[in-house]
Design a protein around this nucleic acid. Structure first.
Lengths: 138, 138
DNA sequence: CTTGAAGCTCTAGTGACTAGAGGTTGTAGA
DNA sequence: TCTACAACCTCTAGTCACTAGAGCTTCAAG
């Protein structure tokens, strides 16, 4: 049996975050000692590991809830799980596309200015003032 | 002179967002009509355009505040502006790095599963349950 | 002069936590 | 067995950048 602090160390999830996950229903309410402190078993540890990993991959709390539901109903087709993962992938790809465009613009903006001179004619500022200078859509 | 609605249409920034920008000090308080409605001139329009563009590029409200301060003190060196832009670029690059790793994992996870079978042995779920399957750091 | 779109302020909600106050429990060492 | 104190508890409020809604007032076209 682990205390919340031990669970935190093993998973890398901060203590208040673990309590938050319980509050929003992502973790089942843990058992308690007589003095009202949370105690976790191996299952709790694994569950939190799953959540941690999914959060690292950018899944929302809502999506993770749905995935956990699926885990607990092994009779249901895993098509839903695949859909959630593919939605997430589409999301990540869209973000990549946008960030790549932003990188292009930021490089252009940063390189135009050598850091000398007054901000009067600073390339960073004039670039930001006028979208028409941009090479990409964003 | 423009009403807040006209300003919104011209810049693509929503009306409540414009009021929010004023509230947090990003936009100088607009002049008002006798009936207390906001009226903007060309300068207000340009300022909001600047903010819009910088937000699109991912700059925080705080960073934009700093950039606007610099615009209003043309005597100050633009080194600060360049620094802000380069910080933002570093930030974007870090996000790109992480997202690229996530994309790799998500492709691996999504492709492992054909959507058939029960969630009992769904590859998506087992992959998320065990970080050790991952090919990349994240 | 009427109508209704557009404006106003204020409060509260979003997601995923994080921080702090103020009190209680568990446990290691004396 | 006692004592210290780290770790735990709950609760409220704050973060960021908005967004939504209630309930009211003003502007401008017909």
């Amino acid at each position: 049996m682990f205390s919340i602090g031990q669970l935190s160390k093993q998973t890398g999830v901060k203590v208040p975050t673990i309590r938050y996950y319980e509050q929003v229903g992502l973790l089942v309410s843990a058992g308690r000692t007589e003095g009202n402190q949370r105690r976790y078993d191996k299952e709790g540890l694994e569950r939190l590991g799953f959540i941690r990993h999914a959060r690292d991959l950018g899944f929302s709390i809502e999506a993770i809830s749905a995935l956990i539901d699926l885990q607990q109903h092994p009779d249901r087709s895993c098509q839903e799980a695949t859909e959630i993962a593919q939605d997430q992938l589409a999301d990540v790809r869209e973000k990549l596309r946008r960030l790549t465009a932003l990188e292009t613009e930021l490089v252009r903006i940063s390189e135009g200015c050598d850091g000398d001179g007054s901000s009067n004619d600073c390339y960073v500022l004039t670039s930001l003032a006028d979208h028409r200078h941009c090479r990409t859509e964003h």
